[in-house]
Design a protein around this nucleic acid. Structure first.
Lengths: 241, 241
DNA sequence: CGCGGTATTGACACTATTCAACATCAGTGG
DNA sequence: CCACTGATGTTGAATAGTGTCAATACCGCG
């Protein structure tokens, strides 16, 4: 499988063979991580950039009362520590939601590549913009949507983002996502998340198994959630309805 | 008053006289805007960067059901359209929460300055990182905090950010903020926001007037909200508790 | 002076949380 | 290979927290 990072960047900027090669060259150090593991901890100073190659991960914050709020889900092609040219202290943690393959990327090498290939830099800037837009969408989602649409919205975003880096999708898409994690992302209790999922299942929009949710009717789910994916592509004009 | 943008950037990078001059030179076109006006509309392609010089503004999204979710509050020194080197379509709107003075900054000029002065570019990158961290904090705040701490948290962030660009603070800080706007930021109903404010007033933490909230006891409010401002300064190490 | 936006208050409905008990599954070690 | 065990999922009932509705008060502005 080609690097999902290339797939992701090419959604924003067409890359030359040389540029793709350069990206491939830095993302060779792939290692497997189990589910529920911590990749980066709040307060850490990340030494290397970590690329999600396979599986799902998330950014999250722990609250004083022990609660956890997931602020972003990472799909293959996503980099853990957002902006590259700067070292900093993590304001949040990153952990896996499923078993993952990740690639460790040396920050200096990544920076060197970015400086050599302006198109890559620009593509990375786009991903950063998309990331910010996604966060705003999450604030609105968590703050103002009713629970059922909120959960549906999250699932819609996930399949949209995964589809953007995986071609040739056929039928439903299975997400390796447990209900506890879904609850922490939707800012709902586990019990309520469970009930909402059952409701979505009754509407034939999703199928639920242990630690996996299959989107059965992506069209219907998007309609139900009133999902407009244009925020994921800040470079495309007029995509907005 | 010196440019609040300089104040803000100097929280991240010490700037030379030349650099300050350069910033001052591009932010001369100041104009006044009334309260409740739209500065940038979702879907627009912003032609110029807009700097808040005085007053409060906000980013917000409108939802299909007519609701409004504020995703970020802009204080003096903040730029409306986040990232500079890129033109794009707004995924959200920007509007004023109080009467404001804003400066229109030509994007090309700003870009030219950034290219000439790496320290300015770096400072802008820091502000961008801080902005992302703030958004994550908002997701956690709106998603997981009880209503009273949520409102308190918002007020704490506001005074922290305003204090960062205004020296010589004495006593309580008055925020020109109506309850409707506060409700849209906290993701609460107007009625409930009103009751929460009364509760905070009973605790002698704030004073409420028409379209203005005065933080009477900043220390107490921060303690009550469990507010840790370190996310606002991603460049400072070890600030985290 | 009247009008519209804002703030306030009470009653009520509803959504979501909590608690608790139980079912189920996957992994582990004996 | 099986039994144990801890994590996950499921369900019902009681409760707390918020939202909605509606009526009123208030203020600034035209």
């Amino acid at each position: 499988m080609p690097s999902p990072l290339i797939r992701k960047l090419e959604n924003f900027e067409k890359l030359s063979k040389t540029e793709k090669q350069a990206i491939l060259a830095v993302s060779t150090m792939v290692r497997a991580i189990g589910r529920g593991k911590i990749i980066l901890r709040e307060g850490d100073e990340p030494r290397k950039a970590v690329l999600i190659v396979k599986g799902l991960a998330c950014r999250y914050k722990l609250l004083p009362d022990g609660g956890r709020q997931i602020t972003d889900i990472l799909v293959p092609g996503d980099l853990c520590d957002g902006r590259l040219p700067l070292v900093h202290e993590m304001d949040h943690s990153v952990g896996t939601l499923s078993a993952c393959d990740v690639a460790d990327i040396d920050r200096k090498m990544l920076l060197a590549i970015a400086q050599k290939h302006p198109r890559i830099t620009r593509a990375l800037s786009w991903t950063s913009l998309a990331g910010e837009a996604t966060l705003r969408e999450w604030v609105a989602n968590v703050g103002r949507r009713p629970a059922d649409k909120r959960v549906a919205f999250l699932l819609c975003e996930l399949i949209a983002r995964i589809n953007a880096i995986q071609r040739a999708r056929t039928g439903g898409l299975q997400l390796p996502l447990g209900q506890i994690d879904l609850a922490d992302a939707a800012a709902l209790s586990i019990v309520h998340t469970n009930r909402i999922l059952h409701r979505l299942r009754e509407k034939k929009l999703v199928a639920v198994e242990r630690r996996s949710i299959t989107v059965a009717d992506a069209e219907g789910l998007m309609e139900f959630a009133e999902f407009d994916p244009s925020y994921l592509y800040p470079n495309r004009k007029g995509a907005r309805t």
